[in-house]
């Protein structure tokens, strides 16, 4: 059994590797929650990369149905072929198109399946997946065929907390909540992306970033992704923090709401 321990450009926080490995070893889906920008989705990519497995992605939308994840029966194509095509329309198999979950279960090798933002779907959606995630098989009605997973896929499910998930579903998952990185972890993350970053810029960026996040009245707090973008701009523009005083340049990179920008200007920049 291979174990996941992060990758060189993905810093794991306490408890995350334990949860990931527990989910893998026990063959249970791993439910990941956390603030936006804490790398929930990225985790699946990195697990696939670290364990050298193929990644399949199922992006959930509000209209998603569990069935679509398993397979779609392309009737239109079949009807069309009946009229014009030269394919054997008696062979129904060729009109069954597996969805991401279906493909993950059908795959000969173990794959990583990311079910991204499961909370976007209707509240019943996770319950509709219980059987498939438990038993790791499903039935194709049209061809009267069972698809049984040869290798249990590693299932990573992310949620942004827009809707509560059902108890029955939660009981089957291993759960991890990714906390927002503290200063030390953030330093490591920045170091991975900008290894040669000037110390002055680093401590300036970190100080300002956490000062801004500490403001209670913000509508949307800046996240890791925004911090990295901001540092990129600071480097590109060759900003010297010592000449800045209280100014926070390119604030628009960190904050996306005008009201938030005004709050920061008033509270931190004394404008």
């Amino acid at each position: 059994m291979e174990f996941f321990s992060g990758t060189k450009d993905y810093i794991t926080t306490s408890g995350l590797t334990e949860s990931v490995n527990a989910a893998i070893v026990l063959g249970r889906p791993l439910l990941i929650k956390g603030e936006p920008g804490t790398g929930k989705t990225m985790l699946a990519y990195k697990i696939a990369e670290a364990l050298n497995k193929k990644l399949m992605i199922w992006n959930i939308k509000s209209t998603a149905r569990a069935q679509d994840g398993l397979y779609v029966y392309d009737t239109v194509q079949r009807l069309n072929d009946a009229r014009f095509g030269d394919r054997d329309i008696g062979d129904i198999k060729q009109y069954i198109k597996l969805g991401p979950l279906g493909e993950a279960l059908d795959s000969k090798e173990q794959v990583v399946l990311l079910i991204d933002e499961i909370d976007k779907a209707e509240p019943e959606f996770p319950n509709d997946l219980l059987h498939e995630l438990d038993q790791m098989n499903f039935y194709i009605t049209e061809t009267r065929e069972w698809i049984n997973a040869k290798e249990r896929p590693i299932v990573i499910i992310t949620s942004n907390n827009e809707k509560e998930l059902a108890e029955a579903f939660l009981r089957r998952c291993v759960f991890h909540y990714i906390e927002f990185p503290d200063r030390e972890t953030m330093k490591e993350i920045i170091d991975v992306h900008f290894p040669d970053l000037d110390k002055k810029i680093l401590s300036f960026a970190l100080n300002r970033f956490y000062n801004i996040r500490d403001l209670q009245s913000l509508r949307k707090k800046p996240s890791t992704g925004e911090l990295l973008d901001w540092i990129q701009v600071l480097i590109y523009q060759k900003i010297d923090p010592e000449l800045l005083g209280k100014d926070i340049p390119f604030l628009g990179t960190l904050l996306k709401k005008t009201t938030d920008i005004e709050v920061v200007k008033r509270r931190l920049m004394n404008v």
Partner: peptide
């Protein structure tokens, strides 16, 4: 320490 985390990830499903 890993007992703390693993048991939490199995037994507790909400932050």
């Amino acid at each position: 320490e890993s007992f703390y985390y693993v048991s939490r990830s199995m037994l507790v499903k909400h932050e």
